[in-house]
Design a protein around this nucleic acid. Sequence first.
DNA 1: TTAGTGTTTGCAATTGCCTTGCATTTGCAT
DNA 2: ATGCAAATGCAAGGCAATTGCAAACACTAA
Lengths: 142, 142
Amino acid sequence: MDENSKYKDVLNREGIKSTRHRNAILELLEESESPLTAEQLYINLRDKTASIDLSTVYRTLDTFASKNLVIKSNRVDDGKALYELNHHDHKHHLLCVGCHKLISMEDCPMGELQQVLKKKMDFDVTGHKLEIYGYCRDCKKL
Amino acid sequence: MDENSKYKDVLNREGIKSTRHRNAILELLEESESPLTAEQLYINLRDKTASIDLSTVYRTLDTFASKNLVIKSNRVDDGKALYELNHHDHKHHLLCVGCHKLISMEDCPMGELQQVLKKKMDFDVTGHKLEIYGYCRDCKKL
DNA sequence: TTAGTGTTTGCAATTGCCTTGCATTTGCAT
DNA sequence: ATGCAAATGCAAGGCAATTGCAAACACTAA
Ligand SMILES: [Mn+2]
Ligand SMILES: [Mn+2]
Ligand SMILES: [Zn+2]
Ligand SMILES: [Zn+2]
């Protein structure tokens, strides 16, 4: 199987063509354990084999976002756009205010809270947003 | 009392001068029940008495943010910067997606989570944002 | 395999949000 | 009132992101 077609099925399922760049971008996103900026992807791709234009990176990410293949968000400190693979599972991150690293939490702590709210407040939870800030292992030593 | 000095005490407490523009911006933020962009503030101010430059709006908001008088965030859809008054009370609301009522929660459910994160992830929590959506007592009957 | 089609990409220019340098004005302490 | 640091207006600049267009490419149907 061609390395450039690793995600052919995924892409075809969304009605878009399987290209070198699209496969490469999906691969990088899959390898990364934290969201990436368009520029980070761009630099990573340029350093590898595949020269690519930054506008192509943006267009590709926009396409992926519109197909719900990736989730677009904004970095807290500078508002720059971040992109991560949509794993379709409900997830939260810990944001280190020291080094701006994003760390994935294994599970959502809201589960039991929902039950409490249902009993005490008679409120049926359908969703939530949760962001947690603090200092990671590395940064709190300094 | 001069209308242009409504927030003199607040501003002096932060060690910055009380000016026409700063008072006007604080007033607009206080009147608004939702966060505003710099441009919204700019247009609002220009249409009133006070001609103001957009760069002054940004500089003022940055100053306020650095003094923790306002909270800066980013709009979800376009990433544009949003500014709102910092009311300094740590509080969460239940937002009913049926009637858009905001219900205050008596206490913050994050307390025990912090301890868990410290142990399991070696992460020191300094803050968080939490929004909860769902259906209130009245709306879930319908 | 080849030719044909719409899609994707590179490139360069452009947009729009936001920032910065500098001269002038203003608030405020003396 | 006077003096000085802080705040402001103005114009230029920086930078993430977008766009128009021509060339390259993926895929389909001969
Ligand atoms: Mn959750
Ligand atoms: Mn809380
Ligand atoms: Zn860190
Ligand atoms: Zn309701």
